[in-house]
Amino acid sequence: MALRTFVSALGVVVALLLTAVAVPAAWVDENIVKEDGFVRLAGSLGSDSDFQSRLATAAVGSFESSVNLPEPVRSLAAGVLKSATAGMQS
């Protein structure tokens, strides 16, 4: 009888752990992996000019920190990249 109780309790714990993994995995599949869900989730970002501006600034900042250029050339390149990213977004 004690072994049956232990196996039952172990089964419940395993079921709860699998549920804890399955629910987030199902959400990711539905909202990130599948195209329709991703479009619903990220579609509003396409018209959010504030988000697009911050994204362009982050991309340019990432470029500036990874490339070792003299300061005048770096600021010129940053301006060109920022206008290019703004053009791509529009």
Rank of each mutant, 00 (worst) to 15 (best):
67 V>Y: 13
35 E>K: 03
53 S>Y: 11
59 A>V: 11
31 N>F: 08
11 G>K: 11
84 A>I: 03
48 D>T: 06
14 V>E: 06
22 A>N: 07
50 D>S: 11
24 P>Q: 14
18 L>G: 11
49 S>A: 15
18 L>W: 02
2 A>C: 03
29 D>E: 10
50 D>N: 10
68 N>R: 12
86 A>M: 15
3 L>H: 03
60 V>D: 05
74 R>W: 06
65 S>P: 01
30 E>C: 13
38 F>Q: 04
16 L>A: 08
65 S>D: 14
38 F>H: 04
87 G>S: 12
33 V>L: 05
79 G>C: 05
71 E>V: 11
43 G>R: 03
80 V>P: 01
81 L>N: 02
49 S>V: 11
56 A>S: 13
55 L>N: 12
73 V>S: 02
13 V>W: 02
47 S>P: 00
54 R>C: 02
1 M>Y: 03
42 A>R: 06
60 V>A: 01
79 G>T: 13
57 T>Y: 02
8 S>L: 15
62 S>I: 05
21 V>E: 13
2 A>H: 03
5 T>S: 12
12 V>D: 00
81 L>D: 04
32 I>W: 08
5 T>E: 10
18 L>F: 09
9 A>Y: 03
45 L>E: 04
35 E>P: 00
78 A>G: 04
74 R>N: 05
66 S>K: 09
75 S>Y: 07
55 L>M: 07
70 P>S: 15
14 V>S: 02
6 F>W: 08
39 V>A: 08
86 A>P: 01
87 G>N: 14
10 L>W: 10
51 F>S: 04
64 E>V: 03
3 L>W: 13
73 V>P: 00
2 A>M: 13
63 F>Q: 15
87 G>R: 15
40 R>H: 05
19 T>D: 11
18 L>S: 06
3 L>M: 09
70 P>W: 08
76 L>P: 00
25 A>N: 06
9 A>I: 01
65 S>Y: 02
19 T>H: 07
68 N>F: 08
54 R>D: 15
41 L>Y: 06
37 G>L: 07
19 T>G: 11
79 G>Q: 00
18 L>Q: 03
21 V>C: 10
42 A>W: 07
69 L>N: 01
73 V>W: 06
29 D>M: 08
40 R>K: 10
63 F>M: 13
21 V>Y: 02
69 L>G: 00
55 L>E: 12
16 L>N: 00
84 A>L: 14
8 S>C: 05
67 V>A: 11
52 Q>T: 04
42 A>Q: 02
59 A>G: 04
48 D>W: 14
42 A>F: 13
39 V>N: 03
63 F>C: 13
